[in-house]
Design a protein around this nucleic acid. Structure first.
Length: 691
DNA sequence: GCGCACACCCACACACCAC
DNA sequence: GGTGGTGTGTGGGTGTGCG
């Protein structure tokens, strides 16, 4: 008996009573539009009392659905997950969340959903009293007995989505396998499990690797919320609150950001980033009590036992406000620089800065900045000198040095403060204001309200609602940014962080959706994904001998294909292709905190010299399968092709077109190249607009 | 009627790019 | 290489209306 069956059989009576004598699909008809795993789904439907239609329904009828990953029929179309999840739980789930919108947005039809009263979720949804909900949630948790808790639920879903066997999730296989697969699914990994998230011994997969998926959504949370429309208001449960606090504690430097809570929202499907952030700010921040120590880069630190270190000292956020003292010091320093430039005299010592042996370049620069009417010895004192309208020139070197001397703000930030605030306020004016306030024993304020920029089009920044996000990874790569003008040969050039975030959080969204649908037994993936897992794993194993055994030592370094628009200067510091690939392997096998998605891309940039746009585009081509990343470079370098053609697991634009067209001949070719498992994954990418 | 979930706002810190 | 333009998300909120 499988774990899922065991779990189900230990469920309380109110679950069991939902089983239908006729089979849960009794009275429902399904037409299967996709070939992938068609027989499997057909057998589920038949076995559980449903009817399989040979032809697509010609009109909308109650209890009649097309089963597909995409709604191209403009008829009620349901995701296959509905079948597998319902079968998994032997319960007719609420079909509404599984209904796919038509590709043609103008298509209009009414969808009559079957009586959802028989679904666990609707029962929970209708339980209005909090006490009842909590009691039911607890009953669920207890019913699952040996449940793997939140962490393994997320891992299970991640593994399920990209294909991971039960054995591997149970830690019976190598830990690399797990990490790879979880990362494959685009889920960011933590550096380790939380000592406070009650990860139990059963979480072998998490413990073995020290890697726990960020998701960690409480099983109770997921089950209760799984079938609710996302726009519904719903209360935060204790489990959700604890999950939010736990993530914040592991991301203390991001506790005030919007993106952290947006990322959390992908694992708490019933709430938006806006609401979770508000929940934290207004209610939960009071309960934070401690966070985990992080280094200067925001990475979690561990003690000698390998556990996270609690601290009640909150680290700095990502941005720091300028203080009045900083503004004043900046004004004084710039005034000093201008004084030196104009009079070529040190304001404190009065010594001339002009030397007989000055380099010609120094002399030339001096002529550009100094006052031509100035008579040496006649310069005013520093106090008497006023900057007036002078705005520059001020060398970049000035801000570079200033940023190094005062690292509380970056070089760019200091320069921007000068440009946007000090120049607008007036250097002399701010110095006078500051000194006057001090002289009168008042506390001067920093400059403010000096920015006057045109309001940007679209939603205001800091708004993370349920609205459809901007599609960053369009096939055309068209973006209303300067990216369209640069020289990159790959389509997605700019908005790098956003792309990365969009890419990975998009996957996470997909995952969380699947997780939320596995409410009764989230630690056991549905059969479909096990097949998918098996398929991808088998393919990969077979391909290894053909595609991963190219000797990197035979590839000259740097390879001709490695151009500066794809690689940073750091890349060219590698001594050999092997050394570069070793580093890629190193990163691929590394674990990351789940909220550090962009960290992966940043590490690839910082340690391998791969530009973020390039690595993002590669990850897209790989459908997020990190295992194939070394293969990508190996083949690209070996065959001087980007992307390398005819390599399994690497999707080219042509492949995607063929998949979209879906002709029998094209599909045969794709199956031959990528295998059915990867095709299934790619379809999900298409579904989620990630290609 | 009210608490809370969720939407929305915006100044600005920091960044990057084109000229 | 100095400068202006502007993209982007943080930080710290407030507004709105559902349950």
């Amino acid at each position: 008996m499988s774990d899922s069956q065991e779990d189900f059989d230990t469920a309380p009576d109110h679950f069991l009573e939902l089983k239908s004598h006729h089979g849960i699909f009794h009275g429902l008809k399904f037409y299967f539009a996709d070939d992938v795993n068609k027989d499997f789904y057909k057998s589920i439907v038949t076995k559980l009392g449903g009817t399989v239609l040979d032809d697509p329904p010609k009109d909308v009828q109650s209890g009649q659905y097309i089963v597909s990953h995409v709604n191209t029929f403009e008829m009620p179309t349901v995701d296959p997950l509905f079948l597998s999840n319902s079968a998994e739980q032997n319960t007719l789930l609420n079909i509404a969340p599984f209904i796919l919108p038509p590709v043609n947005e103008n298509a209009a039809y009414d969808v009559e959903v079957p009586d959802a009263d028989s679904s666990i979720d609707s029962r929970i949804t209708k339980a209005s009293e909090k006490q009842e909900r909590e009691a039911q949630a607890q009953a669920e948790a207890e019913a699952r007995g040996r449940h793997h808790d939140v962490a393994s639920a997320a891992i299970a879903a991640a593994a399920a989505s990209l294909g991971h066997s039960e054995d591997e999730r149970e830690g019976k296989k190598d830990d690399h396998g797990l990490r790879r697969h979880v990362m494959d699914a685009g889920v960011r990994l933590e550096q380790g499990e939380s000592p406070v998230s009650d990860v139990n011994e059963r979480n072998v997969s998490a413990d073995a690797t020290g890697a726990v998926a960020i998701g960690e959504p409480s099983k109770t949370v997921l089950s209760r919320s799984s079938n609710l429309p996302p726009h519904n208001k719903s209360s935060f449960t204790e489990e959700e609150d604890e999950f939010i606090l736990d993530v914040v504690r592991k991301n203390p430097t991001r506790r005030t950001t919007h993106t952290l809570f947006d990322e959390i929202s992908h694992y708490v499907p019933n709430h938006t980033g806006n609401s979770i952030r508000h929940r934290y700010r207004v209610y939960l921040s009071k309960r934070l009590n401690y966070v985990y120590k992080v280094d200067e880069n925001g990475k979690l630190l561990r003690d000698e036992k390998g556990e996270f270190i609690k601290t009640d000292v909150l680290p700095q956020g990502l941005k720091r406000k300028f203080t009045a003292e900083e503004d004043y010091q900046l004004a004084i320093n710039i005034k000093t620089q201008f004084y030196k430039d104009i009079y070529q005299s040190d304001p404190t010592t009065g010594e001339s800065l002009i030397r007989d042996d000055d380099e010609p370049s120094t002399v030339a620069k001096r002529k550009m900045v100094m006052d031509p009417t100035f008579i040496p010895g006649k310069e005013p004192s520093f106090q008497e000198y006023t900057v007036g309208d002078r705005r520059g020139p001020l060398s970049r070197e000035f801000f570079k040095t200033y940023g190094e001397k005062y690292p509380k703000h970056t070089e760019n930030a200091w320069r921007d403060r000068f440009r946007k605030f000090l120049l607008n306020y007036g250097i002399d004016e701010y110095i006078a204001y500051y000194e006057n306030e001090r002289a009168n024993n008042r506390i001067p304020e920093p400059m403010k309200n000096m920015t006057n920029r045109v309001k940007r089009p679209g939603p205001a920044p800091g708004n993370y609602n349920n609205a459809k996000k901007v599609k960053f990874m369009s096939p055309t790569g068209q973006q209303p940014t300067s990216a369209s003008t640069n020289q990159y040969t790959i389509p997605q050039d700019d908005l790098l962080d956003e792309e990365t975030l969009s890419f990975i959080t998009g996957l996470k969204r997909d995952l969380s959706r699947m997780e939320s649908h596995q409410n009764a037994a989230p630690d056991v993936p549905f059969e479909y994904t096990q097949e998918l897992a098996e398929s991808i794993r088998n393919n990969f194993a077979m391909e290894e001998t053909q595609f991963d055994t190219i000797n990197p030592d035979e590839i000259p370094f740097p390879p001709p294909i490695a151009t500066t628009d794809l690689f940073m200067p750091e890349f060219f510091h590698f001594a050999s292709t092997r050394e570069f690939l070793n580093k890629v392997h190193d990163i691929v096998n590394r674990t990351y905190h789940t909220s550090q998605a962009e960290k992966l891309v940043e590490d690839l940039r910082d340690e391998c010299g791969i530009r973020k746009a390039f690595s993002t585009s590669i990850l897209t081509a790989l459908s997020g399968d990190l295992m194939v990343l070394p293969r990508y470079f190996l083949c690209a370098f070996r065959y001087s092709a980007n992307p390398p053609m005819n390599v399994p697991g690497i999707w080219t634009k042509e492949d995607d077109e063929m998949l979209k067209n879906g002709s029998e001949e094209d599909m045969k070719l794709l199956v031959k190249k990528h295998g059915t498992g990867r095709i299934e994954m790619r379809k999900r990418f298409h579904q989620n607009d990630l290609v």
